[in-house]
Lab assay of single mutants.
Amino acid sequence: ASVAVIAAGTQGNIFATSALRSMRFLQILRMVRMDRRGGTWKLLGSVVYAHSKELITAWYIGFLVLIFASFLVYLAEKDANSDFSSYADSLWWGTITLTTIGYGDKTPHTWLGRVLAAGFALLGISFFALPAGILGSGFALKVQEQHRQKHFEKRRMPAANLIQAAWRLYSTDMSRAYLTATWYYYDSILPSFRELALLFEHVQRARNGGLRPLEVRRAPVPDGAPSRYPPVATCHRPGSTSFCPGESSRMGIKDRIRMGSSQRRTGPSKQHLAPPTMPTSPSSEQVGEATSPTKVQKSWSFNDRTRFRASLRLKPRTSAEDAPSEEVAEEKSYQCELTVDDIMPAVKTVIRSIRILKFLVAKRKFKETLRPYDVKDVIEQYSAGHLDMLGRIKSLQTRVDQIVGRGPGDRKAREKGDKGPSDAEVVDEISMMGRVVKVEKQVQSIEHKLDLLLGFYSRCLRSGTSASLGAVQVPLFDPDITSDYHSPVDHEDISVSAQTLSISRSVSTNMD
């Protein structure tokens, strides 16, 4: 405001104040949320940038038409019409005319000016109207692209899951042992070998009828009888010197917790746990005396209480009078009846079946994303299906024409109403129809010849004498029936064969 007042002088105070007050009108834009329509302006900018070359070309040609039209109309009207006294007036008329506004304040009066105005109007309006069409088509394409992008975003994750499931299904095939990355992934998420051994031990116990592997080994086996189970490696608790092959000598807290839970599941009659010990102070733990958990001091820290809870689970003690015997301790020893080589084939089979199920689920979810969402998608899918159906029908028609023997030239002739090819031409065609016709002709010829021969033979049998045999009239074959199959017997006289037959029969009768 200060700059405006200084620039306008003393009389500019009122002007500056009114100008600043008129800017209050811009507050109405906040009512229509114009300040939060950044996406709309961004869309407009992207459309203009995408079609910038077309817009520049249309505007450039339109500007050239405007300059030439205004100049030529000015030359034609400057002497006869006072409205075109300057080139600026003519340029104003050209702008209003070519933009199809047409105020009518300035019009050419001479015939030359009117002809020039009409010609440049028809030429220039087309170029001035091009930017509107370019922007409209650009907006339509952009909206369609955003629509497809939205659908693509919805299909991206199911497609990625389907590709991942397909690759993992491919890589978990037993015949592709060189693909090891997927197996490394499952090695990292699978439970430890100790848990798998416990699982298979329970399965084997159920197969043995509820007997433990130790009891199965204690059962008497006759001499020479084959053992029911192959000899396997035996594993004891981590306190002993022997372990399962492939295990580490260090046992983690999870393994100890699972070991304690498995020992508690063996039965309360074979294992008696004394009350857990509780320390009397955060600094020292008295293991010899058993106290109640309700006497825990409230001033303990979080670490002390955590250690106390761990001691409740991981440090059970047995009383002296209830101490288990050596046999019970041997039964409680952890027996590992299986090795990694025995378990891994079954584990890989389970993983393979899981990968198949996940692949089928991913495939079903991806197919669900291909379903249409709204009416536009339904129409688009219907149009695509219609085009596909037309293509299939056209391909089927082409194959039928190839089989029947109607080529493209014959199809055009039928469409024009011309006469089709004759039967002889159809026979000569190298097509399925021509071959079928040729075979039918040959079969008819053979059938006719057989009928003639059978009739001749029956007449010979009825006559009974050589004289009557020679008097029999043998009809000749019709050459038209034989089609294109020409037998060497067709052109010979059958009477010669009949005479030869009669001579042979007379000779045979004389010999008798």
Rank of each mutant, 00 (worst) to 15 (best):
Q204P: 01
T339K: 04
D423E: 03
D451G: 10
F359C: 07
I253V: 09
I356N: 00
S284G: 13
P275S: 04
A362S: 06
L501R: 15
Q499L: 06
V340M: 07
Q444E: 03
S458A: 04
S292R: 08
G385A: 15
K315E: 14
R212W: 07
P316R: 10
P276R: 01
T266A: 15
G420R: 02
L469P: 12
T172P: 03
T482A: 13
A274E: 02
A329V: 07
D428E: 02
L357V: 01
Y186S: 10
E327G: 06
S468N: 12
T509P: 02
F193I: 14
R264G: 02
R212Q: 03
S192Y: 04
S506A: 15
I503L: 12
P231H: 08
L360V: 02
S281Y: 13
P479T: 14
H202P: 11
P213L: 14
K295R: 14
D428V: 08
F193C: 14
R406W: 09
A346V: 12
D304G: 14
L476M: 12
K298T: 15
D187V: 04
Y485F: 12
R258S: 00
Y373H: 01
L469Q: 03
D512Y: 13
D401V: 11
E201K: 01
S497Y: 14
S487I: 14
S319T: 09
K295N: 15
E492G: 07
A384G: 03
T349I: 11
S269Y: 05
A274P: 08
M389T: 01
V203M: 13
S261G: 15
E425V: 09
H386R: 10
A177T: 07
S311C: 14
K295T: 11
K298R: 10
R317G: 04
N303Y: 09
F359I: 02
E247K: 12
V361E: 01
E337V: 11
P213S: 09
Q473K: 10
V474E: 14
Y184N: 08
S502G: 11
D223E: 12
P231R: 07
E215V: 02
G391A: 12
S395R: 13
C235G: 10
R435S: 01
K363T: 02
K419T: 11
K298E: 04
S333G: 11
S395C: 08
R411M: 02
H491R: 13
P408A: 03
M174V: 07
R364S: 07
G407V: 12
V221G: 04
P279A: 15
P421S: 05
K419Q: 05
A384P: 11
D428N: 05
A233G: 05
T509N: 15
K332M: 09
P213H: 13
M278L: 02
L312V: 05
P421H: 07
D187Y: 12
R459P: 13
V221A: 02
P231L: 01
E440V: 05
L190F: 07
Y184C: 08
M174T: 08
I351M: 04
G420V: 14
S466A: 15
S483T: 15
H272Y: 06
S188T: 10
L453V: 01
T277P: 04
V350G: 14
I253L: 02
T306A: 10
K419M: 08
V340L: 01
E215D: 09
D342H: 04
S281F: 03
T180R: 06
R228L: 06
A219T: 13
S281A: 14
A197T: 08
R194T: 13
V296L: 04
G434R: 12
A181P: 15
L370M: 06
S248N: 03
E201Q: 06
P282L: 07
P282R: 12
A274G: 08
L357H: 00
E195Q: 05
P345A: 07
D401N: 09
L454V: 05
D223V: 09
F477L: 13
I379T: 08
M344K: 08
T241N: 01
T482I: 15
G385V: 09
S227P: 12
R176W: 03
P276S: 12
K315R: 14
V426A: 01
R256H: 14
Q271P: 08
L198V: 02
S504T: 15
A329E: 07
S262Y: 08
Q381R: 13
F193V: 14
S311P: 14
A384T: 13
N303D: 13
D410N: 01
R435P: 01
P220T: 11
L476Q: 09
A320T: 09
R207S: 05
V496G: 13
S262C: 05
T318S: 13
S466T: 10
L314F: 15
I343L: 08
F200S: 15
D478N: 15
S422T: 07
T306S: 13
S283T: 13
V474G: 15
K363R: 05
V350I: 01
F200Y: 10
L169R: 06
T180S: 12
D478H: 14
V496I: 15
I354T: 02
D451N: 07
S269T: 05
I343T: 08
G420W: 11
G391C: 09
E415V: 14
G417A: 05
A424E: 12
S192A: 09
D388G: 15
T172S: 11
R399L: 07
S261T: 11
V439L: 05
I430V: 14
G391V: 14
C460R: 06
A346T: 01
L461R: 15
G239C: 06
V375G: 11
D512V: 09
S497A: 15
F243I: 02
R194S: 05
V328E: 12
R250G: 14
Q271H: 15
S383P: 14
R411S: 05
V378G: 13
F477I: 11
D484N: 14
Y170F: 05
A471P: 10
Q297P: 13
V400L: 11
T266S: 13
R435H: 05
L273P: 07
A197V: 01
L476R: 13
F243Y: 05
R317H: 08
T241I: 10
K358E: 01
P230R: 08
P421T: 05
A467D: 11
A498P: 13
G288C: 07
T234I: 04
E215A: 02
L179V: 09
V507I: 12
G407A: 06
R459S: 13
T172I: 00
Q499K: 05
M432V: 14
D173H: 03
P230A: 01
V378F: 01
I189N: 07
Q263H: 13
P238L: 07
E289V: 08
R218G: 08
I481M: 13
R264Q: 12
H491L: 15
L454M: 08
S445C: 12
F193S: 01
T465I: 07
D493V: 04
S311A: 11
P324H: 09
S240I: 11
L198I: 09
K376T: 05
P345T: 02
S487G: 13
L387P: 15
D490G: 10
V232A: 00
V361M: 00
V426G: 14
T294A: 09
V474A: 09
P245H: 01
G209W: 01
D388H: 01
A310P: 04
S240T: 10
P276A: 05
R258C: 15
A206P: 08
K441M: 09
S227T: 09
S284C: 08
S249I: 06
L469V: 07
H448P: 04
L196Q: 07
R355W: 13
S431G: 07
W300R: 12
I494N: 12
K441N: 04
D423H: 04
F359Y: 02
V436M: 12
L190I: 10
E337A: 05
H486D: 15
M511I: 08
S502R: 15
R317L: 09
Y457D: 02
G455C: 02
K412T: 04
Q442R: 01
S188C: 01
I257V: 12
D322N: 10
D341H: 04
V375E: 10
S497P: 07
S262T: 12
M174L: 14
Y334S: 03
R371G: 01
G224R: 07
P488A: 15
D418E: 10
Q286H: 10
V507D: 09
P245A: 02
R207G: 07
H202L: 08
T241P: 01
Y229N: 07
W300S: 15
I481V: 13
S240G: 07
P220L: 11
T277I: 02
K438T: 09
D304A: 14
R250W: 06
L214P: 10
R406P: 13
I430M: 04
A362D: 00
A206T: 05
Q402H: 14
H486Y: 14
M344L: 02
E331D: 09
